[in-house]
Simulated assay, not measured.
Amino acid sequence: MKASKNTKKAGILSRMGYELALVAFLLVWFLFMGIMKPSFLTLNNIVTVLTRISEVAIIAVGMTVVIIAGGFDLSVGTVMAIVPVVIGICYGNGIPFGLAVVLGVLAAVVIGIINGILIAKARFQPIIGTLATMTALRSIIYVLTEGKPVSTFPKGYDQLAHGSFLGIPIPILILIAVIVLFQWIMKSTKYGRFIYSTGGNPKATNIAGISVDRITILVYVVSAVLSALAGIIFSSRLISASPDAGTNTAFDVVTAVLMGGTSINGGQGNILGTMLGILILNFIINGFNLLGINAYWQMIFMGVVLLLAIGYDAKRRSGFAISSLFRRKNSDA
């Protein structure tokens, strides 16, 4: 029992150490860019970056929940695109805007349920199941829009993305609310514990009387709804719903989530770590843009970061497995 407590404590300290290292790296980057490009540290630039990344960060919260539960969701970008399309088409055909928004969110819920059923009930691998959904949804988007942006939105719709409250941009306020809500759910509620348990040891979770299938479906619904929210904010920014929206979103989100310390095998991770990953990646890209670094080099950087994050996760898991083996041998002795 004592060894188990010590192991748990060591794991917590290890995760805190990793997150502190991310914070330290972010501060060093800010210092470096402040010297190279003083405009980087201006309030205007920082607020602009935070506002621009709000959509991706909201989706990343949902992706974190899915990956902690042992899943993976490649369809987030297409959900982000299709929900505003549904809203715009419904409103353009005379449906009241409030009802159009409800129908768009319901479409996201249905997509999340389909993803969850494919993985929990039909036993598709998460990547394959959500890849199929992603492909089908993108085709549906192009059929619905004929490849053209949908611009039938009411007057004032742009205020969601461009408005502010008490001087703080609304997208940032929405992001903060999402972070606080899901940090609380994951750390302080039984549903959060069920999600960690589902990703960490699904067999033991089932034996304990918790429906792994139900939790799996739930996390995909959460991911889809948060992707819908991000899509609504994004379309408000453009005052149109683009059929090409969210094309590379899944890659960016997964990179940030894994960089933030969430294990690709499930059972480990947290929302705040993901937010650190989002901040680091996007402020680095912002710095690259200010320094005039070619966009192709930025793509190479993102790929390298993803490989490093996966490599770190693999090393952490192998180290945990080896230490567990030694503890088991010592207890047997």
Rank of each mutant, 00 (worst) to 15 (best):
M33C: 08
V222G: 00
A295M: 13
S151W: 09
V102A: 09
T51N: 12
L272H: 03
V219E: 03
S14C: 00
Y296A: 03
L118F: 09
L31R: 11
W184R: 13
L103G: 01
N330R: 14
F30E: 02
D244Y: 07
R15E: 12
R237M: 13
F326E: 15
I68G: 02
V83E: 03
T7G: 01
L41E: 01
E19Q: 11
R316F: 12
F40Y: 15
A295D: 15
G319P: 04
G319M: 07
R328G: 01
N45V: 13
A295E: 05
S75Q: 06
V212T: 15
M80S: 02
L103W: 10
A321N: 12
E55T: 15
S240F: 05
V49T: 13
F97P: 07
G17T: 08
F182K: 01
I322C: 00
M299N: 14
L272S: 13
N282I: 09
I280H: 02
I119W: 01
G292T: 06
A224H: 06
V254F: 06
W29C: 13
F326M: 10
V143Q: 14
A107W: 04
T42Q: 09
A228C: 10
G266A: 08
S323K: 14
A314K: 14
K155L: 06
A57F: 04
N294F: 00
F72L: 13
I207A: 11
I46D: 05
L218Y: 06
G231P: 01
R328S: 12
H162R: 12
S236I: 04
G292K: 05
S188Y: 12
F326Y: 14
N93G: 03
K190F: 07
S240V: 10
V110L: 12
F288A: 13
A230I: 04
L131P: 05
F288G: 11
L144Q: 07
N6R: 14
S54M: 10
V28C: 09
R316H: 12
L27D: 01
K121G: 00
R123A: 04
A177G: 08
I179P: 01
G116S: 05
I217V: 15
G88S: 06
S164N: 13
G266E: 07
D73L: 11
I293K: 08
A333E: 14
F251C: 00
D213W: 02
N270P: 00
R138H: 07
M302S: 08
L166S: 11
I278N: 07
G112A: 07
